[in-house]
Computed example of a mutant assay.
Amino acid sequence: MSSGPNWPPATGGGLDELATRLARLAPSCGPVRLVGVDGHAGSGKSTLAARLSALTGGAPVLHLDDVASHDELFSWLPRLTEQVLDPLSEGREARYEVYDWSNRTASGTRPLPPAPLILVEGVGAGRRALRPHLAAVLWSELPRKTAWERGRHRDGPELADFWQIWMAAEEAHFHSDPTRPHAHWLVRQSPEGRVGFRVFPGPAGHPRQQVAPDAP
């Protein structure tokens, strides 16, 4: 995506500024600005998406953990396309199946209105096949090993076996389909959680802005 005019770099800015910039992006999926929030498992993506949602007036958050499953850790794209991308691209409400990780089965469906801004959060949110539908890609900037340590501590010993499977799958995914080189912004969180977030330009540069109606 190309840089828009008069789009100054966000060198170390905070989430307030980023939220404002996200609201100015050009729509990317029909009338919707889809923003991918990607990063390693345990890197703080859910917290980041929740903060951005609050700062943007309640932008809906689609958690990819609800879309993935034990059998489809990363092969959920066809369902996401059919249940979410296709209806949103036509300005219609989406409705997607939600997976219950405890019972290993679908637990019903969840509506997703074609809001002006929707945050897609989860490992793989910035994958190659999704990027044409995304207005911007954010990368939760935390080293893989640190993120995985946080994730394993969060989930506890009962999920230790699953984490062994997950780490191998995630490593294979990012090896073949890396997101960070395509991120428009990198977001770093204080390890102690006291300072908050800092936002830096990503390797992909600035995403496309909304063009004003009176622009030439």
Rank of each mutant, 00 (worst) to 15 (best):
H40Y: 14
L80T: 08
R24L: 15
P111Y: 04
V67K: 02
R51W: 11
T47L: 14
R33M: 09
L88I: 07
G42F: 02
W76H: 02
A106V: 15
R104V: 11
E17I: 09
S53N: 09
S46Y: 05
T56Y: 03
G39S: 07
P87A: 06
H70I: 00
L22T: 06
F74G: 04
S75F: 09
C29W: 04
L25G: 06
G39V: 05
F74N: 05
W101E: 07
L52W: 08
S53P: 11
H40E: 12
L88M: 10
V84G: 02
R21I: 01
V98Q: 03
N103W: 13
P114V: 03
D71H: 11
S53I: 06
V67L: 13
K45F: 05
G58H: 00
H63F: 03
V61Y: 05
P114C: 03
R51H: 14
V84E: 03
P111A: 02
G42P: 03
L88Q: 04
S102F: 12
L85K: 05
F74T: 01
A115S: 14
L55F: 09
P27W: 02
E97Y: 01
R95E: 15
R104E: 12
R24N: 15
Y99N: 08
H70W: 15
L25T: 01
E97D: 13
R95T: 01
C29Q: 04
H70P: 00
E97M: 00
T56W: 00
S46R: 07
L77M: 13
A68S: 15
P60Q: 04
Q83M: 09
H63P: 05
S89L: 07
V84D: 02
L73H: 08
R24Y: 11
L48G: 07
L18H: 00
R33D: 06
G39C: 06
P31L: 07
W76P: 00
D71M: 07
N103E: 15
Q83E: 15
T56Q: 06
L73W: 08
E97K: 04
R24I: 02
R79W: 11
A68Y: 09
E82F: 01
A59D: 01
E97F: 05
D66L: 12
L18P: 00
S107M: 14
P60K: 03
P31A: 03
